[in-house]
Design a protein around this nucleic acid. Structure first.
Length: 766
DNA sequence: GCTTAGGATTCG
């Protein structure tokens, strides 16, 4: 028998088998050796037995136990969660209750997954398997309340009530209204209760003080009434509070802690009360009216419905003297688009709901008239229960005729059907599932924090004079972003990363000498440099030609000729491996030429590699010069990343020699041609520097490598630029450009720098 | 002093 009952706490100690050692909960750590240890503590919470879907439906029960040793009163982590598995869960549920002292032996210690949330204990105990066992000592004393002796109260079943008597009763709440001002001097609570007799009794409670009224959260709550007067009204018994009255309420959830809710400073509460509450809970669970709980999640709300909502308040705003807007959520996504109620951000109290709005998670609740008294004092973050909320389809102000109507929520004036609202304490059992749903959205909060500024700008600020810039754009957007167009001023205020659209003109651009927009880029080390100009390259050739001793390589067949200059010999080398192959004329090594001469030669030969001689050995030139002339293309190698394997080049196994194949054979890291232009954009709100880089070839419809060898293509880029920004033009003369901008940060000397890059944009070609 | 309300949809 894994769960055993004992009569006395001292028996518990006697039960401890001699090989077990008592351990304090405070001292438990992940590295504690659990075997042959036991803990003794009081059950402060016992959850229901549940089936765990992730673990093949195994039965589980969570309990919280607390060490009561007075010596440890100041110590942290005196409470710990215990998970019981399988039959242990069932046995524990039946044998132990809140307030009992238990002794747990041969548990396993696991990391607590809820520690961040409940701050209880970094570990949890798991009771599973053959060895684990539990001894339970039922508590003799009442587990709650200041009462020192068991009260001598008698409770009259509801079917035994006689008129004009003062009684104490217990009942389950089947209907209730939050306290409302009566026409007299007091607030009035109206409720209806029932018990195992199934007789329903109406009850009115009058009190000037709101806090003296019973704290009822939902149908199914259990209420205890002391000193209420009975009377007949419309053929039914009714109850009215009378002198010396008190009420105590309890949550109706089976197996939830029996915690009395009352404002009374002293009240009797004992073991018999716990039993009565548990019996009523058990009985009510099987009654059909209890299932008429009207609490519905947002995901299940249908238009026209009246329902109760358990939710969290995100933000609120006073609309007028008779209406307050509550922005709430319950973590579920509504099936209908939710009405967005725009409120000036300075009128809104609470967090921004922008990210949640976008995911259709925020319900806008309009609270009217008599409910303002409660709504006014609510603080964002509070958990709420809204009663008899009305879901209404409504047309948004800017809505197109073909779009669906939006769902709005009204808490109408009046108290019919218990209409009203109240805050729920965080520990309320009704909130447990809500809180776990909300926790799944923590990412959303982070997203909110990162992007809030940006999104707020986009959604809540009216357009700033962008309307003036209407007319055709010289560019088209190729993206599918559905973002609203922003002014440059607003883009500058945004928080990266972000993609957005702007409409602007080009005030200036760099480089003004457009051939300088051609760059060499190493995809390996990300180095970017200018394409060397001809004078620098020519100088490398001249220096290399000074070594007049021709190369003599075993692997090469050589032919030489005298140049026009005395003493300079031009040599051409071909790999012997390639002689006789179809590719043998595809790759020729040239020595002793000037830049001009190799350019002439490149008209007749596909791939020319300029080389020089160092002590008779063939070597690549300084990589300032192209390592390959391929038709009109000049190919450059990266000075950092090239590994010169020229000593033993391998030329076999290549069918077609292109720049990649040559670079590979020579151990050269090929550099790519890229286009880079820096624009200064301008609109009516601001100016902004944006680069055209990754998207540049698409923007101009020009390939960078082709442009490197083609004056026509370079002229084409110049023509585009002259159209975008005609020389000596005024702002109005320049064409409008629709641009997609990417806003991002780069590390610059350990500091984050915000960059703007034009993406997804092309020029229009007529 | 010893009523008030005694359920039963707003109309924004």
């Amino acid at each position: 028998m894994p769960v055993q009952k004992v009569n006395d706490s001292s028996d518990l100690d006697a039960k401890v088998p001699s090989h077990l050692q008592r351990t304090s909960i405070t001292s438990l750590t992940m590295t504690s050796e659990p075997s042959h240890r036991c803990v003794k503590a009081t059950v402060v919470h016992k959850g229901p037995v549940i089936s765990c879907a992730q673990k093949d439906g195994i039965k589980m029960l969570r309990a919280e136990i607390k060490e009561e040793d007075p010596l440890q009163r100041t110590a942290e982590h005196t409470s710990i969660n215990v998970i019981f598995f399988g039959t242990l869960a069932k046995d524990f549920s039946q044998s132990a209750r809140q307030g009992d002292v238990v002794l747990l032996a041969d548990f396993t210690i696991k990391k607590s997954p809820s520690f961040l949330r409940d701050k209880l204990h970094p570990c949890q105990l798991e009771m599973d398997g053959q060895d684990a066992c539990v001894y339970v000592c039922p508590s003799a004393a009442p587990s709650h309340g200041p009462s020192s002796s068991e009260a001598k109260y008698t409770y009259v079943p509801l079917n035994d009530l006689k008129p004009k008597t003062v009684v104490n009763v217990y009942g389950v709440v089947t209907f209730f209204k939050q306290p409302f001002p009566s026409k007299g001097s007091d607030y009035c609570s109206t409720l209806k209760i029932t018990d195992q007799s199934d007789v329903k009794v109406g009850c009115n409670i009058f009190s000037k003080k709101l806090e003296d009224h019973p704290v009822i959260f939902r149908v199914g709550d259990i209420i205890r009434l002391h000193r209420f007067k009975t009377d007949m009204f419309r053929d039914s018994m009714s109850l009215l509070n009378t002198f010396g009255w008190s009420t105590v309420t309890f949550d109706g959830t089976i197996d939830s802690p029996v915690v009395p809710r009352t404002s009374s400073k002293s009240f009797h509460f004992g073991e018999s009360d716990i039993r009565t509450v548990e019996e009523l809970r058990q009985w009510a669970a099987n009654q059909s009216w209890i299932s008429k709980d009207l609490t519905v999640s947002l995901s299940l709300v249908k238009p026209g419905m009246y329902f109760d909502l358990t939710c969290q308040l995100l933000a609120k705003a006073v609309m007028d003297s008779r209406c307050i807007l509550l922005k709430v959520w319950d973590g579920t996504k509504c099936q209908h688009p939710l009405l967005k109620v725009a409120v000036a951000s300075d009128a809104l109290e609470g967090e921004s709901t922008v990210a949640k709005d976008r995911m259709n998670l925020t319900a806008n609740v309009l609270v009217y008239d008599n409910h303002l008294e409660v709504a006014r004092d609510l603080k964002p973050g509070t958990f709420l229960q809204l009663y008899n909320l009305h879901a209404l389809l409504q047309r948004a102000p800017d809505q197109q005729p073909d779009q669906p109507d939006h769902l709005s929520f009204h808490l109408h004036g009046g108290t019919s059907y218990g209409r009203g609202l109240r805050s729920l304490p965080v520990e309320s059992p009704a909130l447990q599932s809500l809180k776990s749903v909300l926790e799944k959205h923590v990412d959303l909060d982070e997203y909110d924090e990162v992007n809030d500024g940006t999104l707020l700008e986009i959604w809540y600020t009216p357009p700033e004079a962008v309307e003036a810039d209407t007319g055709p754009s010289y560019t088209v957007l190729t993206c599918e972003h559905n973002t609203r167009r922003l002014t440059l001023a607003r883009v500058k205020r945004s928080t990266p990363p972000l993609s957005c659209h702007v409409r602007a003109r080009v005030k200036k651009y760099k480089p003004q000498q457009l051939y300088q927009c051609l760059k060499l880029f190493c995809s390996n080390c990300k180095t970017m440099e200018d394409v060397p100009d001809d004078s620098a390259v020519a100088k490398v050739f001249r220096e290399s030609a000074k070594d007049n001793q021709a190369c003599d390589e075993q692997w090469a067949a050589t032919s030489s000729a005298s140049s026009r200059e005395p003493g300079r010999t031009i040599s051409m080398h071909i790999s012997r491996d390639m002689v006789g192959e179809s590719s043998h004329m595809q790759l020729i090594f040239v020595e002793g030429t000037t830049l001009d001469e190799i350019c002439v030669l490149s008209r007749d030969y596909k791939n020319l590699v300029p080389v020089r001689s160092v002590n008779g050995r063939m070597t690549l030139m300084d990589l300032t010069a192209p390592f390959l002339f391929s038709g009109d293309k000049r190919c450059y190698g990266c000075k950092q990343c090239s590994v010169n394997t020229f000593q033993n080049p391998v030329f076999t196994g290549v069918e077609t020699w292109d720049e990649q194949a040559v670079a590979k054979a020579l151990g050269v890291q090929l550099m790519q041609y890229r286009l880079l232009i820096q624009f200064e954009l301008e609109d009516q709100t601001d100016t902004l520097e944006a680069v055209l880089w990754e998207n540049a070839e698409k923007f101009f419809h020009v390939s960078a490598v082709d442009a490197s060898g083609s004056q026509d293509l370079q002229d084409k880029i110049q023509t585009v630029m002259d159209t975008i920004q005609p020389p000596d033009s005024s702002l109005e003369e320049r064409p409008l450009l629709d641009l997609c901008l990417s806003v991002y940060t780069v590390k610059d000397n350990d500091r984050n720098k915000v960059c703007y890059q034009i993406t997804n944009t092309e020029i229009k070609e007529e």
